[in-house]
């Protein structure tokens, strides 16, 4: 069953309009927002995006159903604003710049179409309502890009934090230290394990001292990850020495039935290093 939408005369006139030659009138908002003191774009670039915008608006108004906000033409227009937002954010601009641009360009489009057709679209409530619904969607696309960008930045920061919170250091020829601080979750264990095993292979490490002084609590999953890490180190042919286990963690490991029989443990990192040196036949003493 199809529903026929009742369109006003001016909206019908708008959809029947052949849109061309309005790009130059769409440039003003772009120049004002992006070519000012922030220098996010040059005038030529603004001219290019205005031409692209003209073509996309023409496609939407000339489409089979311009009121369909899920149409391919509307998706293309949303993609344009999404990309524009990404571009501006990457160049150090603010999301407010793109939102203001989008709002201003809405009125510029109506004015340009009025000039091109001689029809007073700005006086028509239904035309204004139509453009408001379209541009609301476009503002959503702008915010979508902003949120994506924020999410990516957040993930990159988290990854960097993870890397810096588990520094693997070769403290002596063949002896690696790995102080673990914070919580060991699945994704972090994967990252730590991957870099640790690669370092063992690259440096031909014979012993790894894993210090848990910075781990304040442990649960079944974390202990399982810890065991996996120790086992992988042993499988590579290196000795794993676990140090700095807090009494609460020791109690938790016992209650979780974790088998520490094949794992060397020492109270502190210093004791762990002494054990690693002893196994390698290195003696360290006061001069």
């Amino acid at each position: 069953m199809t529903t026929k939408k009742a369109l006003s005369e001016k909206v019908k006139a708008l959809f029947a309009l052949k849109v061309e030659g309005i790009a130059s009138q769409l440039e003003a908002p772009g120049v004002a927002m992006f070519c000012g003191s922030n220098r996010l774009m040059d005038v030529d670039e603004v001219s290019d995006i205005s031409h692209e915008l003209e073509s996309l608006v023409a496609s939407l108004l000339g489409s089979k159903d311009p009121t369909d906000l899920a149409s391919v033409e509307m998706q293309a227009l949303k993609g344009f604003f999404h990309n524009l937002s990404q571009k501006v954010l990457m160049r150090g601009g603010h999301v407010e710049d793109v939102v203001r641009y989008t709002q201003t360009v809405q009125f510029s489009v109506i004015e340009a179409l009025e000039k091109a057709s001689g029809v007073a679209f700005g006086q028509s409530r239904s035309v204004l309502l139509y453009f408001t619904s379209v541009f609301n969607e476009l503002i959503m696309a702008v915010f979508g890009a902003y949120l994506d960008e924020r999410e990516q930045t957040l993930q990159a920061q988290q990854a960097e934090l993870r890397e810096t919170s588990t520094p693997i250091t070769e403290i002596w020829d063949g002896v690696l230290t790995l102080p673990i601080i914070g919580t060991l979750d699945s994704s972090r264990t994967m990252l730590v394990m991957e870099s640790l095993l690669n370092r063992i292979s690259k440096d031909h490490a014979k012993a790894v001292v894993m210090d848990l002084t910075g781990v304040k609590s442990i649960d079944s999953q974390v202990s399982h990850h810890l065991m996996q890490m120790v086992r992988a180190v042993q499988l590579m042919g290196a000795d794993a020495i676990v140090t700095g286990i807090h009494p609460e963690i020791a109690r938790a490991l016992v209650s979780l039935n974790i088998d520490f029989n094949n794992i060397t443990t020492r109270a502190s990192m210093s004791d762990g290093l002494k054990e690693a040196f002893r196994r390698m036949g290195v003696t360290i003493g006061h001069i």
Binding site: M193, E194, H204, R231, A232, Q234, L235, M236, N262
Partner: peptide
């Protein structure tokens, strides 16, 4: 000469230490 990727995969499904010993070289 167990590769890091192999040790990683093996550690994920092993419950205890294997019967064989391991060494880098």
């Amino acid at each position: 000469r167990m590769q890091p990727t192999a040790a990683f995969a093996l550690a994920r499904f092993l419950d205890g230490l294997p019967v064989f010993k391991t060494a880098l070289e």
